[in-house]
Amino acid sequence: MQETAPADAQEAAPPVTAFMLVKTTPEWLAMTPEERVRAFSTEVVPAVEARTTGVRSRFYDTEFYSTRVTDVWVWEADDHHAYQLLVDALRETPFWDRYFTVVDLLVGTENGYARTYGTEAVATLTT
């Protein structure tokens, strides 16, 4: 027997979160920090803003702990279509396979299991 999520959970699609694991290339590392900021501001941000809406990003440095993945870009999109448009936009910029190598994409929705089984999400809270 297949269980379904409650009706109210089905009506509101959860945001899509993508963990984009990337590795810097020699071309990116040859730039000064100012050139990197300018490249991101003039080459990536306008492309993403022109192609999609409802997308937010956060960036994490991991090169201190990993040689395979130097950065993790966390993208949150309002839905799967916005995420698809985001990836299409990024692939049109030098960031995709020129400044960074995309090592892996991990895409999911937060607490998807809870919606699937109609249960409360289990999480830890510390203060």
Score class of each variant (00 low, 15 high):
Glu43His: 09
Thr52Ile: 10
Thr17Pro: 01
Ala9Leu: 09
Thr109Val: 04
Leu90Thr: 13
Glu63Thr: 12
Trp75Asn: 15
Leu105Ile: 12
Thr4Ile: 00
Ala5His: 01
Asp97Leu: 14
Glu27Pro: 05
Pro26Ser: 07
Thr127Tyr: 07
Asn111Gly: 10
Gly54Arg: 02
Asp78Lys: 02
Ala114Tyr: 02
Pro33Tyr: 02
Val72Leu: 15
Tyr83Thr: 09
Leu125Cys: 09
Val16Asp: 01
Val74Met: 07
Ser41Met: 14
Leu90Gln: 12
Asp88Cys: 13
Asp88Leu: 12
Glu63Arg: 10
Asp61Tyr: 11
Arg68Cys: 13
Val107Leu: 04
Tyr83Cys: 11
Leu125Gln: 09
Val103Pro: 13
Pro33Ser: 04
Ala13Lys: 00
Pro46Ala: 12
Thr124Glu: 12
His81Phe: 11
Thr93Ser: 03
Ala12Pro: 06
Glu76Pro: 14
Val37Glu: 08
Phe19Ile: 13
Gln2Val: 04
Thr32Gln: 07
Ser57Thr: 04
Val16Arg: 01
Asn111Cys: 14
Leu106Ile: 10
Arg36Ser: 13
Leu29Thr: 12
Pro26His: 08
Arg68Thr: 15
Arg68Pro: 08
Ala121Lys: 06
Glu120Asn: 01
Glu3Arg: 00
Arg68Lys: 08
Glu63Ala: 14
Ser41Ala: 14
Asp79Val: 00
Glu35Thr: 04
Gln10Thr: 00
Thr119His: 01
Ala114Lys: 02
Thr93Arg: 00
Thr93Gln: 03
Ala121Met: 14
Asp79Asn: 05
His80Asp: 15
Glu110Phe: 02
Thr53Phe: 00
Glu35Lys: 03
Thr93Gly: 02
Asp104Ile: 08
Gly108Ile: 05
Phe19Ala: 11
Thr24His: 06
Leu86Pro: 10
Val122Asp: 06
Gly118Ser: 05
Asp8Leu: 01
Thr119Gly: 01
Val48Asn: 03
Asn111Tyr: 05
Gly112Glu: 03
Leu21Lys: 09
Pro46Tyr: 13
Glu34Ser: 09
Val55Ala: 11
Asp79Pro: 06
Phe100Asn: 12
Thr52Trp: 06
Ala39Glu: 14
Ser57Phe: 11
Tyr113Ile: 00
Gln2Ala: 06
Tyr83Leu: 13
Gly108Thr: 03
Thr17Ile: 10
Trp96Thr: 05
Ala47Arg: 07
